[in-house]
Computed example of a mutant assay.
Amino acid sequence: MKPPDAVVFQHLDAAQARELRATVADIYRRSYVDAIASGDPFDSPDQFMHRFDSYTAPTRRDVFAMVIAYLDGQPAGQTWGWTLSPNAAWWNNFRPDNTIVNRDAFTAEDGTRTFALSEIMVCANNTGRGLARALHDALLNSRPERRSTLLVEPDNERAYRAYRNWGWTRAGITRPSWPDAPTFDVLIRDLPAGASSG
């Protein structure tokens, strides 16, 4: 589905994202209504914003990237991620599927190989309009890395179906070190810049 013509994308680095912290929190609350209502501590707005503050810390200024979508001048969704550094914690608890022959080679990072897509969210009143895919493409198509990775809860059928349609494949599972973090499936996808550079 094509997003509305009125959508405007704002690309942000870590410092710019921190300046819009209230907007980030508002989009989260309007996107994850059911998850927040469930009472799961991992999905609480406070824990979510604690993670956001970690992602956008000054030490991550050069690796963090974010896109906010505005529809009719109002924030409607957001996505962000960062380039994985050598010895990235992202892979610490990774258990690969049988399709991964060499775990060490698969998880080796040099600071330019992999972009970790951390979040995509669209406010509940704007879902079903193609904004999630548009945000996904606006962020990833601007990246110079060769591949991207993301985490998805195995029972999140809607998100899983979308990611598969967008070219993602499962590589294994992991449980991040965040407090109350669930076990996630780890997905992987080549990026346009990586494909063109061989």
Rank of each mutant, 00 (worst) to 15 (best):
A89E: 02
D190I: 03
A37K: 14
G198E: 13
D137F: 04
P154S: 14
I68D: 12
A88E: 01
P75C: 06
N93C: 03
N98A: 15
A134Q: 03
P192N: 09
S54N: 11
M66Y: 01
D43Y: 14
L139C: 12
F48A: 10
M121I: 02
A57L: 05
Q78A: 14
G194W: 04
T83N: 07
D13I: 04
T114P: 05
I68C: 11
S142Y: 04
V63N: 06
G39S: 10
A17K: 03
N87S: 12
L84I: 02
S197E: 12
A116P: 00
K2E: 14
G194C: 13
A22Y: 02
W82R: 10
E157I: 09
A65L: 06
L187C: 06
D43W: 10
E119F: 01
R158L: 11
R30Q: 15
A181F: 03
D26C: 09
V67F: 06
V101E: 15
D62L: 11
D72M: 03
A15L: 05
A76P: 02
T112N: 12
P182I: 08
A37R: 14
G194R: 08
S142V: 04
Q78W: 00
Y28A: 08
N165G: 03
A195D: 12
Q47N: 15
T107K: 02
W82L: 13
L135H: 03
N87R: 12
I68L: 13
P179T: 07
T114Q: 09
L20N: 11
H136T: 05
D34R: 13
D5R: 10
I173A: 07
F106I: 03
N165M: 04
S44P: 10
D97C: 09
T83W: 00
Q10I: 10
S31H: 04
G77Y: 00
E19L: 14
D13M: 09
L150S: 10
D46Q: 14
S38H: 11
A17V: 07
N92T: 10
D97H: 14
D155Y: 13
V67D: 08
A76V: 00
R133T: 14
R170L: 10
F48I: 04
G167M: 08
A25R: 09
S85E: 15
L117Q: 09
Y32R: 10
A88N: 04
A6E: 12
A162Q: 08
F94Y: 14
A65V: 01
I188V: 08
E19Y: 07
R60H: 15
T149V: 15
P182L: 10
S148K: 03
A108K: 05
L117D: 05
A195L: 15
V152P: 03
N98K: 13
R60A: 12
E19D: 12
E119W: 00
T79K: 02
G172Q: 01
S196W: 03
Q16T: 07
N125S: 12
P45Q: 08
W90A: 01
P3H: 08
D62F: 06
L84P: 00
I188H: 13
L139Q: 07
R129G: 11
Q47A: 11
N98P: 01
V24Y: 00
G81Q: 09
S44H: 10
R189L: 05
N92G: 05
D43R: 11
W166S: 06
Y70N: 07
D72C: 06
N102R: 09
